[in-house]
Design a protein around this nucleic acid. Sequence first.
RNA 1: GCGCCUGUAGCUCAGUUGGAUAGAGCAACGGACUUCUAAUCCGUAGGUCAGAGGUUCGAAUCCUCUCAGGCGUACCA
Length: 553
Amino acid sequence: MKEKIESLLKQTLEDLIHEGVIPPCELDIASVSIPPDKGFGDFASNIAMVLASRAKRPPRQIAGAIKDAMECHADIIDRIDIAGPGFINFYINPSLWVNILHDTHAKGKTYGTSTFGAGKKVQVEFVSANPTGPLHIGHGRGAAVGDTLARILAAAGFDVEAEYYINDVGNQMNILGLSVLSRYRDLFGQNIPFPATGYKGDYIRDLARRLSEIHGKNLLDEEESAAIQTCRKFASQVILDEIKADLDSFNVHFDHYFSESSLYSNHKVEATLDDLRDKDLSYEEDGALWFRTSSFGDEKDRVLRKQDGSLTYFAPDIAYHKDKIDRGFRQIIDIWGADHHGYVPRMKAAIEALGADKDCFHALLIQLVSLVRQGKPVQMSTRSGEFVTLKEIIDEVGKDVARYFFLMRRCDSQLIFDLDLAKKKSDENPVYYIQYAHARICSILANAADQGLLSDVTQADLSVLATGEDLELIKTIATYPDTVVSCAADLEPHRIAFYLLELATAFHRFYNKNRVISDDGRLTKARLVLIDAVRQVLSNALALLGIDAPESM
RNA sequence: GCGCCUGUAGCUCAGUUGGAUAGAGCAACGGACUUCUAAUCCGUAGGUCAGAGGUUCGAAUCCUCUCAGGCGUACCA
């Protein structure tokens, strides 16, 4: 609908430029928006004000010329007003609005999808937590955002891949092995001081216990490095399996798990380092190998290989992103915790140095989540083992509430997750408000089915819906496809959460003021079509957030 | 010190990328169930958009400075 008005406006502008009424300009500036108040029509354009200084004529006069030229489209536009400093307000012919419902019905689950990103391969990489411990609440936000963003991009027509990068190489994995071995020895009375940097969570003791069930006390006799290896391998495998199970119960799905160690076994790290050296992008200094990231906007050069000969985290990460580029992704979206924001310039530099367009890389930074229980902040730290796991959150408040809470804020705004609030099954909880709207509709549809009213609704005369709350509902349904596109274009999934509230509100208001099933047969049929469309859109939008749409509550 | 994010109603947050009288939810107050689910609806009240300058027809939005909170500033990951 919006596009229709926009193209009409552009066409009119072109004609007026041709006639010399207004000076030449790019047609792109002719955009149409939904006004803040219903009194300003269905759509509005500020084009006359934008053109005013260029045309050296008052905006209202230009608006008048545009209005006169557009009034011939009476089949689409009911009325055109000029308001305020020079806004052009369009009132759409109600019979056109009503047609949206045919569209919703015909498209069903695909209503809201588009070809916006057609033909473009994008990758979203998220969570990517080290397999050194269970996922905690901070990972939960990244998981919900990443998974939802992937769903939104797919709905907008992109060819999307969701990927998890497993950091299964490096020092923290040895610390994990050492931590488990230490607890294992404890079980057999060997009291060796626990490593200062070790992981202290109870899950480490569980892993040690399970290891003892498999190996008995055999690991005590092994050489320490071999025993650490055994512990490490076992622990990371078990933990990764648990992470996958947690993600599954959170309705988060990945197309691909990418192992860091594969970069080594396929010699990709080596190849990348060679590549950088051959292009003179790296150099030796002070016994270390440096990458000239400062030539690409970073504030200083970065170390690839340390003095002790081992590689930094950065080195394989460059190889990893080179691999992403080689896989043909037009957009590479990394979802990171905001505490990693200092890492963005060097990754961008790396992308550019690798010869890719630096704008193809987006680091989406997710701000911190702090947990509040009974009004008090819950302290968390992975190393000390004091953290609330994602699994605990899901068990406590449910998957749907947890996902919605993570998705209802802009990513760059810090999130206070109030556990007591999340558990309340009341007005304070927006998730139930939205799901309740869906359940209510299902209930009405079931009633209608019992009365045999659903048989010939496709022939319903929808023109009876052209007023009041019925029309408001239709207009809200009509904005859904645009909302999905804007979320995909701006990488802002929270807008779907707000859209759902808006649609649920419009429905509840409609419900309280009107009856769907009434003595008026024509109106009943039309309204059954209407609420089924609302049900469909609620269900589609909830699916983007990975939240269930219950048929009864 | 430098860099990034945030600051909007008592609380939690939106604000379509510069547009019209700044909006929701919760909390407060007052109403609505003989009716398809009251986990709902309607009404009232609530604001120096942290502060000060600037840019222009027009600023919560863009620029500069100040203040406050968070994060970062590794040859850690």
